[in-house]
């Protein structure tokens, strides 16, 4: 069965001036991610993994190349169209959770719905499923500061999935969590996106986190230099170490 990729990057380049030098943060990347695919992007600092994620999410404009989400060219969209795409078809999970401190858990997870004009009514059944599976059912009226880090990140995942987006972007999602909590949170994310058929792009330093992905891409100097499928954390860590030593 052939399917069109959900997220596709063609000849992606992003360069900028740093003093007299031109730096190629992303230097010619082609990607095609299918529905339900979970990829991790790893690489040493400065390898371009964050820039790549920002380009894929339409948060940064490439110097060359295109990004297609469900066949729609993000690079041809204006700010308003991109905002709508982010709101309806993308989800975001951050290292520092970034829940709005003045809103309850319920209000936080409905945030992407509340940004619609007129606001979209929450789908009660879906919300219940989501909060149930993420173990948030008893926490809905709490404020973020009353929650542990792991709970906050689960709320962030619920917020990212509340509109069943095509792609979820996760930026070091385990960076502020202890190992066990990080593992539990990623297992939940993995299960949920697989059952939903969401694609995930996760940038991480953490080999254990990356082992939850179906595929791990390794970046160096803005290029994909290696890729591992269904690898365990040991294989991923070894590849990373080789990569760092070679540079």
């Amino acid at each position: 069965m052939t399917t069109t990729p959900v997220l596709q990057a063609r000849g992606l380049r992003r360069s900028y001036q740093s003093g007299p030098q031109t730096v190629h943060a992303v230097d010619g990347i082609d990607l095609a991610l299918d529905a339900g695919e979970f990829i991790a992007v790893m690489g040493p600092s400065g390898s371009g993994k964050s820039t790549l994620m920002h380009l894929l999410a339409g948060l940064d404009q490439p110097s060359e190349g295109t990004v297609l989400l469900d066949g729609d060219d993000l690079t041809a969209m204006d700010d308003e169209e991109l905002t709508t795409v982010r709101r309806r078809r993308m989800g975001f999970v951050f290292q520092s959770f970034n829940l709005v401190p003045d809103l309850t858990v319920r209000e936080n997870l409905r945030l992407p719905l509340s940004f619609e004009r007129p606001p979209v009514r929450p789908d009660g059944a879906w919300e219940a499923t989501l909060t149930d599976r993420l173990g948030l059912a008893g926490l809905l009226e709490r404020l973020p500061h009353e929650l542990s880090g792991g709970q906050q990140q689960r709320v962030a995942i619920a917020r990212a999935l509340v509109r069943t987006p095509s792609v979820v972007f996760a930026d070091e999602p385990t960076g502020n969590l202890d190992v066990a909590t990080g593992r539990a949170v990623l297992s939940l994310l993995g299960e949920l996106v697989r059952s939903l058929g969401c694609t995930v792009v996760m940038v991480t330093h953490d080999a254990t986190a990356a082992s939850h992905a179906d595929r791990t891409l390794f970046l160096r100097d803005g290029r994909v230099v290696d890729a591992l499928d269904d690898a365990d954390d040991e294989a991923i860590a070894r590849t990373m170490l080789d990569l760092v030593r070679a540079s």
Partner: peptide, 15 residues
Amino acid sequence: RETGLMRVLGQSRAD
């Protein structure tokens, strides 16, 4: 920074 976060999550400029 909060504005940036909200915009990333899809809040329009008007909003």
